[in-house]
């Protein structure tokens, strides 16, 4: 190989950029750092990340950031337009401060996002890799179950679950997770099918490794990256589904400041008092967009098929 004229690197950067790491930790950190470098070079993805960090910050410090109590009603002060006295984004039909409600609502959004992101892909990964690696009748059974779930429109299925389990934010999350896992199972299975025939899996089999070890230690690490990308891209859909359930009155219940439920309440006044429904709508839009941007950036960094970028 020809030489590469290196830009000067010093201290911890040199330590991270080294081609010959001296320990397990250094090797791991160096590869993370490399990923970070290529992620950082994508401005859109960085924008997504900044918005989401902002969301995290807002949720964590909601009591400090919110100018008012999100549940405090003053009917005398109802339906104030944005920029009115003391209410930056106006007030809703019960005179509650919309900005404060959106700030507190971010906690609910994060809760939904986090729980769905933990439940659905993990279930999908389990089902998909087991089906893909073992093959045979187990594959057929698991994949037909997946097909059955896939055959229903997502929101309709979630509606059915919530109707059966009872309305409420917890059940809404459960319902969304139950409808979200099949695509992950499909992706994980497809990846597993290509990975399982590769030489490095054959090689570890020739060391006497059993299926459990191969699936968890050798197949999962390769499937996880594409699942993470997919989860991030799907998060926009999850937030919208949660908002949709809230809008239909099957998700978070009043007076909870869930964004979808807020839009639902604002619907009655949408012609005369547009801001009541628009402000939470903008919040949903921004966060969904941020997840999409982040997902795109992560795809470039994590997707093993896109190479190591050298």
């Amino acid at each position: 190989m020809s030489d590469i004229s290196t830009t000067e690197t010093v201290g911890w950067r040199a330590w991270l950029m080294t081609d010959a790491p001296g320990s397990r930790t250094q090797a791991r950190l160096a590869s993370l750092y490399n990923g970070w470098l290529s992620f950082r070079s994508n401005p859109m993805a960085m924008a997504g990340l900044v918005i989401l960090l902002g969301l995290l910050f807002t949720a964590a410090f909601a009591p400090l950031l919110a100018p008012h109590d999100p549940f405090y009603q003053t009917l005398a002060n109802r339906l104030q337009p944005p920029l009115s006295d003391g209410h930056l984004l106006g007030t809703d039909s019960l005179g509650r401060d919309i900005l404060s409600r959106i700030i507190y609502g971010s906690r609910i959004t994060l809760q939904i996002v986090f729980l769905v992101a933990v439940i659905a892909p993990v279930a999908g990964l389990l089902v998909g890799t087991i089906a893909g690696y073992t093959g045979g009748w187990l594959d057929v059974i698991l994949m037909r179950i997946t097909d059955i779930f896939l055959a229903f429109p997502r929101l309709v299925l979630a509606l059915a679950f919530v109707a059966a389990l009872g309305a409420g934010i917890g059940n809404a999350i459960l319902a969304i997770s139950l409808t979200a896992w099949p695509p992950y199972a499909r992706i994980a299975r497809a990846e597993t099918l290509t990975i399982r025939n590769s030489d490095y899996i054959s090689a570890i089999r020739l060391q006497g490794a059993g299926p459990l070890r191969i699936i968890t230690k050798h197949i999962w690490p390769l499937c996880i990256s594409s699942l993470i990308v997919r989860v991030t891209l799907d998060m926009a859909g999850v937030i919208l589904a949660a908002a949709g359930l809230g809008f239909l009155g099957l998700g978070a219940q009043p007076p909870s400041p869930e964004w979808g439920a807020m839009i639902s309440e604002g619907r009655k006044f949408i012609l005369d008092h547009w801001w009541v429904a628009t402000m939470p709508g903008l919040a949903i839009f921004t966060v969904s967009l941020a997840f999409n941007l982040l997902g795109d950036g992560l795809r470039d960094v994590l997707d093993p098929k896109s190479g190591e970028g050298s």
Partner: peptide
């Protein structure tokens, strides 16, 4: 192809 891409 015979070495796992994510393993040192």
């Amino acid at each position: 192809a015979s070495l796992h891409p994510r393993q040192t």
